[in-house]
């Protein structure tokens, strides 16, 4: 449904994405993984048409995405940034903004009902009349996700959706998001830093390094060599409750600590 072929992108003369190609099927949840600065967010921004690729092609339902007008793109893609401003509006209204494309002059009952439905699914009904700039970072992140879902896009794109959440809320929120996008038949592409969380909740994982795709497949492709190649660290990969689980080796952790030199600064 969403297809990317030979995508290249550069900031000025610095090439950030090299020959990136992959396909995303209907209703699939795909996590993009890789170290900081490999081009994950840039790839997401290209998928949202915020960046125009220097070469390559992106299609959604057979339509060339770079040719789609901004309003048409909004019918296909919903976007949740890593950070955004909290405005002085209620949480309900900040989610209702997601219906912008469908609101003509006034809000319809369908718009309001959908907002309540998604707030229920994300367990945030009690926040409805709180001001968005007064809730916690995690709650605001959930409100952002809810806003993108009420937009009813074909593809939901999220930049590190769990970055503001503690471990309990990470799992809770990912459960809620996955249930919700599956029930709404929305495909999802998100960048993640936690391989284990991504393996738990994604259908496919896309590993990137230096602007290139290293590997793209299901969670069972995760192994010691792949993690070593992408992140440059030694890990053990074990199977835990039917899912691969990545554990950094102790000597790896010790090596990191010894570099710390006891002063909080790496050795020269």
């Amino acid at each position: 449904m969403l297809s990317v072929s030979n995508l290249n992108f550069q900031y000025g003369k610095t090439k950030v994405l090299h020959e990136v190609s992959f396909d995303i099927e209907d209703n699939a949840i795909v996590s993009i993984l890789g170290p900081n600065g490999v081009g994950k967010t840039t790839l997401l921004r290209c998928l949202c048409n915020f960046h125009r690729p220097s070469e390559g092609c992106m299609t959604i339902d057979g339509n060339n995405m770079t040719d789609l007008p901004i309003r048409e793109m909004a019918k296909y893609i919903g976007y949740v940034p890593q950070r955004s401003r909290a405005s002085r509006t209620t949480v309900f209204d900040s989610i209702l903004i997601g219906r912008r494309l469908f609101i003509k002059w006034s809000v319809t009952k369908k718009d309001i009902d959908l907002v309540w439905e998604i707030m229920d699914a994300l367990n945030m009904r009690s926040l409805a009349l709180r001001f968005a700039d007064e809730i916690s970072g995690g709650e605001f992140q959930k409100a952002q996700i809810a806003r993108a879902i009420v937009q009813e896009p074909r593809v939901l794109i999220m930049d590190e959706p769990t970055s503001n959440l503690d471990i309990a809320n990470q799992h809770r929120t990912m459960h809620m998001i996955c249930d919700l996008v599956r029930s709404k038949s929305i495909s999802t592409v998100m960048t993640m830093h936690d391989i284990n969380l991504a393996a738990n909740f994604s259908d496919k994982l896309l590993f990137m390094k230096d602007g290139r795709i290293v590997s793209y497949g299901d969670k069972w492709m995760i192994n010691e060599d792949l993690v070593k190649e992408v992140y440059g660290i030694d890990v053990d990969v074990i199977e835990h409750k039917g899912t691969p689980f990545v554990i950094p080796r102790k000597e790896q952790a010790d090596a990191c600590l010894s570099k710390d030199n006891g002063s909080g600064r790496p050795e020269a």
Partner: peptide, 20 residues
């Protein structure tokens, strides 16, 4: 007015909502 509400959140979010 709805565009302004969206633009308060940020330009990327507004563009993803179909606002030029």
């Amino acid at each position: 007015r709805w565009d302004y509400n969206a633009m308060e959140v940020g330009d990327d979010v507004s563009r993803s909502l179909g606002i030029d």
